[in-house]
């Protein structure tokens, strides 16, 4: 898999290696994400999936390798650079702003779209007021899209788990990202909630044209949703391809069925 960045490639990572002390978390991983696709990353626990997302949006800094996003190659990302250039994400363990309302969480997601300074904000007139209203409208569109109108003003800390996941998706969408990273968006959900979430993921992809990279454990979901699947195991790249290829890959079968590892 050493594809060159073709025009439709939105993100390419090359030979990324990340370690904490002696522990090697990612070992020379290379893959790409094409604009408009749904890309899944799967693998057993501790495979380095979340770490991979953390590298992409700049929270972890890999020791080796490079990241090419929208044609610009960097050794590593910085979180604000990633956010500024249109990468948004959700988290494995919900990382909402618990003390704030649903609306405020989503409005915070629009932070980068807002520019007025402290002075105008303190007066809350003129540009600050206009800006607040414009962004409120954008936030309301997302609230409508996710069907969470009723919890608009509720503090998110007290919402049920499934709704929190939905609000978190809303917060990521509020930034109008080009690449959306979803870290186990369906973990811990019942099948009905999962179905809802799958529909949102597909809708986001088709309606907004957002490229999506997602980590998921539910193989059914992964195989149904994804255009292509990357398999990681103990920080190593095991397979990469369309769902059918991956499903029949012997290494993947071994890893999941538990053939003893040689370390």
């Amino acid at each position: 898999m050493n594809q060159q960045s073709s025009p439709e490639t939105i993100l390419a990572v090359e030979n990324i290696s990340l370690s904490f002390g002696v522990m090697k978390v990612l070992d020379s991983i290379s893959f790409d994400i094409r604009r408009g696709e749904i890309r899944s990353i799967i693998g057993p626990n501790g495979a380095g999936k979340s770490s991979m997302l953390n590298v992409i949006n700049g929270f972890y800094h890999p020791q080796e390798g490079s990241i090419t996003f929208k044609g610009e190659t960097r050794k590593q990302m910085a979180p604000h650079v990633a956010a500024n250039h249109g990468i948004a994400r959700t988290f494995q363990n919900i990382a909402l702003f618990k003390g704030m309302s649903t609306l405020d969480n989503i409005m915070t997601g629009r932070n980068l779209k807002m520019k007025t300074n402290l002075f105008w904000q303190a007066l809350h007139i003129g540009p600050a007021r206009v800006e607040e209203l414009e962004n409120r409208e954008a936030a309301e569109k997302i609230i409508d899209f996710l069907g969470i109108q009723a919890i608009r003003k509720k503090p998110v800390g007290k919402l049920p788990y499934g709704l929190q996941k939905r609000v978190e998706l809303g917060r990521a969408l509020a930034a109008e990202p080009e690449l959306l990273l979803l870290d186990e968006p369906m973990a811990g959900m019942n099948s009905e909630e999962k179905e809802d979430m799958c529909r949102f993921v597909l809708d986001v992809n088709s309606e907004f044209g957002t490229t999506i990279a997602l980590i998921e454990h539910d193989m059914g979901v992964v195989m149904d949703l994804s255009d292509r699947v990357l398999v990681l195991d103990y920080g190593k790249q095991l397979a990469d391809g369309v769902p059918d290829e991956v499903r029949n890959n012997q290494d993947v079968i071994d890893a999941y069925l538990g053939v003893p590892h040689e370390h």
Binding site: G58, A83, A88, F91, A95, F97, T108, N111, A175
Partner: peptide, 16 residues
């Protein structure tokens, strides 16, 4: 408030 509630998430959505 975002920094107060979850600083890492805040940073990753572009709050400096």
């Amino acid at each position: 408030m975002a920094i107060r509630d979850m600083d890492i998430a805040a940073e990753l959505i572009g709050v400096r």
